[in-house]
Amino acid sequence: MPIVVENLTHTYMPGTPNAHVAVDNVSLTINEGEFFGIIGHTGSGKSTFIQHLNGLIQPTSGRVLVDGFDMNDKKQRRQGRALVGMVFQYPDYQLFDSTVLDDVMFGPKNIGQSPEEAKASAEAAMRTVGLDPEKFGEKSPFELSGGEKRRAALAGIIAMKPKYLVLDEPMAGLDPSGRREVLKTISDLRTELGCTVIMVSHSMEDVARSAERIAVMNESKLFALGTPDEIFSRTDDLIAMGLDAPQTARLAKALREKGIAVPDNIYTNEQFIEWFGRVRNA
C-alpha cells in the first residue's frame, strides 16, 4: 500500500504576523518499493513536508495516509508511525546514549524488542551502515566524526526495520566516498529489505542516480513531479528556481547550445559515457 498525501498544507505559527505557509496544497502518492527523491532550494518546505509522513507534525489542512492509516487520527498515527522510519537532517538531534550501541538499540527497545533482540538488530544495522560494532559499539556517540555520527543516526533508524525510510539530506557533511557508500547502503537496503526510500537531497547527482521519481518543491509548492528523465530535461526551469541541474545535464545543455544533438534523457555520468561511446563508434 502506498503513502497518499492529499492537499497537504502546513502553516507555521498560524494567526500571528509571523505566519508562514511552509507547504502549500501538495498532493502526491509514494508507491511501495520505490526510491522517491525530493529536491528544492533551501527553505522550500522539504523538511516540513516529510515530517508529515511520520505524523511528527500535523497538517493545517489536508491529510496523509500511510498504508491507509490516517495520520491526523491519534490512534491510527501510532500504527502509521511504526511503519515510517525518519532520519533527521542533523544527527546531533538524535544521539544521546553513553555508547553508540546503546544509542542504536534505543529504537528497537522502544518498539518492544528484548535487550538481546535489540542488540542483534543494532549490530546488524551498524554493519549495514559501515560502522563496525566491535570498533564503534563502545564509543561515545559524541566523540564520532560528523560522518560517523550520521551513520550512527541512520543505523538507529534502520535497526527498527521500517517499511518506509525517510531521509532528510542523509549525505550532508560526508566526503565523496562516504556519500557514495551511504547512498549505496540506502540502495542496498531497498533491494534487500524491500523498503521504500524517500530521500531529500541537495545533490542533484545523487538524486539523478538513485531516484525513480522526483518531486521538485519550490516556494512551498509542488513544482514538478516525475521521473528523472522528465525532471532533468527541464534544466532551465531548475536553474531558474535557484536549483542546480546535475553536472552532466548542464554539460549536455552546453553541448546542445553548440549544435551537438545530445538526447534529452542524459543527466548522469554513466548515461553520458554510454551515449558518447555510441556516438564515437558510429
Binding site: L56, M86, F88, Y90, F106, N110, M160
Partner: peptide, 12 residues
C-alpha cells in the same frame, strides 16, 4: 526537533 527525532524512534 530533538523531541521529534526521539519520537520517530518510538520514544514515549
Amino acid at each position: 526537533k530533538i523531541m521529534k527525532a526521539q519520537l520517530a524512534r518510538g520514544a514515549d
